[in-house]
Computed example of a mutant assay.
Amino acid sequence: MENPEALLVLARARLPDALLRHLLASHDGPAAALAAARHGAGLGLPPACRQALASPCPRLLAGDLAWLEKPGRQLLAWGSPDYPALLRRTPWPPPVLFLHGDPSLLWHPQVALVGSRRPSPGGRQRAHDFAAALAGAGWAVTSGLAEGIDAAAHAGALAVHGRTLAVVGTGLDQAYPPKNAALMARIADQGLVLGEHPPGTPAIAAHFPTRNRIVAGLSLGTVVLEAALRSGALISARLAGEAGREVFAMPGSVDNPVARGCHRLIRDGATLVETPAQVVESLEPLARSLAADLRGALETGLADAAGACPPGPCGHSAGGQPAVSVNHKRLWSALGHDPTPLDELARRTGLTVAELSSMLLVMELDGQVVADNGRFARRP
């Protein structure tokens, strides 16, 4: 993002989410939104917000800009075309997201794996194995980087070189718990770490339940593997239900206190699952529907019969799908047999990350491309 200062000032001002989304949606860019917020006498802002807008702290702003200048870091605003579509459709999307890693993962089909911070040894192993199986099947595994189930899920996805996203309740320069700092660095390098709080934001108890809405909102389904009756994982499950997403729970021993939350979810209507394959079977139609929606938005009619693309990306696919737009031709021409990172594809095609991610997802599901750690190539 060019000139991110205005958006950083807005993010630091702690405006109500709905108000900040409205300001960003109704003005031509963050600078105009900031000017409107500064002059909005009728907004009813508390004194602390007005002060933060009028006189932002130079030290904090300089620190935020320094953080953003490092490779792999981005600031994503509500009005951006790159804002993830699934999260946008929730009742409570965050107006700003800080990103560290591969932003294309925001557009990849995700499954949230959540559960207890103090799981049983068997629960920890199941989380690792579940994540490895889902990631190996091409899904992105999303969780909250907490101790226990979350950490095991991220580690399981990384173990098979799969995709994983960690949503944190702190600034992205703060690892919480501190012992997960190395895991957080691996995810930033091989996947994506994201959150709604500026750099330097410490671990605050109130931020973790709100973090869960992002975990649930990014995912097509949420799987609770082990959870006590008062577990934060049940908040994630409730939020997933509120967003219209699938909720799954794994049963356990009636004598296991960290299984009782799962049993309650099942009694309340969550789908009982025992294997990753059952989750995939339930969510595949949703993923294909999402791909069809993306395909419908991207296809603009029959391609030129003289185009140089093979069947699938251009021309009619084997399933009789109509040919796709000039943008698809441009992307296919930019792809080679050597894996190419998304930012290089953006440079070659002139398309945005959102446009590329949408097309690449459709092409991957159609078997036209392969993805490897955020790099894309034509399928041999």
Rank of each mutant, 00 (worst) to 15 (best):
M1K: 04
M1V: 09
P4L: 05
E5G: 02
V9N: 00
L10P: 00
L10G: 02
A11D: 01
D17H: 12
A18C: 03
H22S: 14
L23A: 14
H27A: 05
D28W: 12
P30W: 02
L34N: 01
A35Q: 08
A36H: 03
H39Q: 15
A41Y: 10
Q51E: 04
R59I: 01
R59D: 09
R59Q: 07
L60F: 00
A66K: 11
W67K: 09
P71S: 12
G72R: 06
L75Q: 04
A77E: 12
W78F: 13
G79A: 15
S80A: 15
P81C: 13
D82Q: 11
P84M: 11
L87W: 14
T90M: 06
P91Q: 08
P93D: 09
L97C: 04
H100G: 00
H108Y: 07
Q110I: 05
Q110C: 14
A112Q: 06
R117G: 11
P119W: 02
S120F: 05
G122Y: 15
D129V: 09
A131M: 04
A135D: 06
G136M: 02
A137N: 14
A137F: 03
G138R: 12
S143A: 06
G144S: 07
L145S: 05
A146L: 05
E147K: 15
E147Y: 13
A152G: 10
A155M: 05
G156C: 05
A157L: 02
L172C: 01
L172K: 02
D173M: 06
Q174N: 09
A175L: 01
Y176F: 15
A182Y: 07
A185H: 13
A185D: 11
Q190E: 15
L192Q: 03
L192K: 06
V193L: 01
V193F: 01
L194W: 02
E196S: 10
E196R: 07
P202I: 12
I204G: 09
I204F: 12
A206C: 10
F208L: 03
P209E: 03
R211G: 00
N212Y: 07
N212M: 08
N212G: 11
R213D: 07
I214V: 15
V215T: 03
V215A: 01
L220N: 03
L220R: 06
T222C: 08
A228D: 12
A233N: 04
S236Y: 02
L239R: 12
V247H: 03
P251E: 04
S253L: 11
R260L: 10
C262Q: 01
H263A: 09
R267C: 03
T271I: 07
L272V: 08
V273S: 12
V273N: 04
E274M: 14
T275F: 14
P276M: 03
A277F: 07
Q278S: 08
V280I: 14
L283G: 02
E284H: 05
A291P: 02
D293A: 15
L294S: 05
R295M: 00
A297H: 12
L298E: 10
L298H: 09
E299N: 04
A305K: 01
A306I: 05
P310A: 13
P310V: 15
A318N: 13
Q321T: 03
Q321N: 09
V326S: 11
H328Q: 12
S333Y: 05
S333A: 15
A334V: 13
L335W: 11
D343Q: 05
A346Q: 10
R348N: 08
T352W: 00
V353F: 01
L361F: 01
M363N: 10
M363K: 10
E364V: 11
L365T: 06
Q368F: 14
V369Q: 04
R379M: 03
P380T: 14
